[in-house]
């Protein structure tokens, strides 16, 4: 057996993979938060609840309609994204002229309502979601056995993150979006429908969270609190990365997941707190975050 720093290789790589998976979720969620924050200037506290809704949407599609995992990967984000668009249109859009903190409070209230409703309907114990047959099993990579589904999650998350980055940084839609983030009235003067752009951005960010939710469904049991467990850590990730850059969110998400995984190997007691400790250090050294531009 290979030993690395006195740790058996398979254990180290296993935890690294787990770290990468957590990191994939951090990256997708913090990416959504950053995109929404850039356009709407609100922190979407309901992001965790919408992530959870994505998971439940996949579960419901399977159990009520009989639609399997792969169609759900597209349908669930679409459904939850539509819910997000409705929420933005009906409720959140009323707050743009107020202090940003009201947006935080409103979305916090929304998350309580959503989670409470799901807890009433489905209890807190969690519902199982089967890994699709084609992604069952494990492959031998030589240095470790990798469950195929876990590898798939990392790859899928990476692809979606990079696609989002490409849309925002490389397409004309993305250019309009970035321009509207910088100076909305001016972009509106050029004839762009900025309110619609804002709505679509919120819907897109929410769909990202829901996509992460579908990916998470077979790994964690589908339960109303699953967003709660993630969202606080994701806030720390956002503070560490700073919300200025898309690539920054992706890198800090994956990076912190890996750090968390490594901590589980070398000092398990601190694995839950290590992300927050990193945040403390970053705040002391570079208060604006690693990739942050604005205060």
């Amino acid at each position: 057996m290979i030993m690395i720093f006195g740790i058996p290789g398979p254990l180290l790589f296993g935890q690294l993979l787990l770290g990468l998976i957590n990191g994939a979720f951090y990256a997708m969620l913090s990416l959504g938060l950053a995109v929404i924050f850039g356009m709407l200037n609100i922190i979407n506290f309901a992001h965790g609840a919408l992530f959870m809704m994505g998971s439940f949407a996949a579960w419901m599609l399977l159990n009520y309609v009989g639609i399997g995992y792969f169609p759900s990967l597209i349908l669930a984000p679409l459904l939850v994204g539509i819910i997000g668009v409705v929420l933005e249109k009906l409720v959140i859009s009323r707050l743009y002229k107020l202090d940003h903190l009201y947006g935080l409070l409103l979305t916090f209230g929304m998350s309580l309502v959503i989670e409470g409703l799901f807890r009433n309907g489905y209890g807190s114990s969690g519902l199982p979601y089967r890994i699709p047959d084609i992604l069952q099993g494990a492959v031998n990579l030589g240095f470790m056995y990798m469950p195929i589904y876990r590898g798939w999650v990392v790859v899928a998350a990476l692809v979606v993150c990079l696609a989002t980055w490409a849309i925002i940084e490389k397409t004309s839609l993305g250019a309009t979006l970035r321009a509207a983030t910088e100076n909305a009235p001016l972009v509106q003067a050029f004839g762009v429908n900025v309110p619609r752009l804002v709505t679509l951005t919120f819907g897109g960010g929410v769909a990202l969270a829901a996509f992460a939710g579908v990916l998470a469904a077979p790994i964690y049991s589908v339960n109303p609190n699953m967003g709660d467990n993630f969202i606080n850590t994701v806030f720390a990730v956002v503070v560490i990365g700073g919300m200025g850059s898309i690539m920054g969110s992706i890198i800090s998400g994956f990076g912190l997941g890996v750090i968390e995984g490594l901590t589980k190997v070398f000092y398990p007691q601190a694995s839950a707190t290590v992300v927050f400790l990193v945040m403390v250090i970053i705040l002391m050294v570079k208060p604006r975050g690693l990739f942050g531009k604005t205060a």
Binding site: F37, T233, V239
Partner: peptide, 28 residues
């Protein structure tokens, strides 16, 4: 001392994250 380095939304997120750290400390 750590949190007042930022204000507004960031202050809220930082205090939330630091409190979460305290929560995990209490758990262990």
């Amino acid at each position: 001392y750590l949190a007042i380095r930022r204000s507004g939304i960031y202050f809220a997120m930082i205090t939330l994250a630091l409190a979460q750290m305290v929560y995990f400390f209490c758990l262990e």
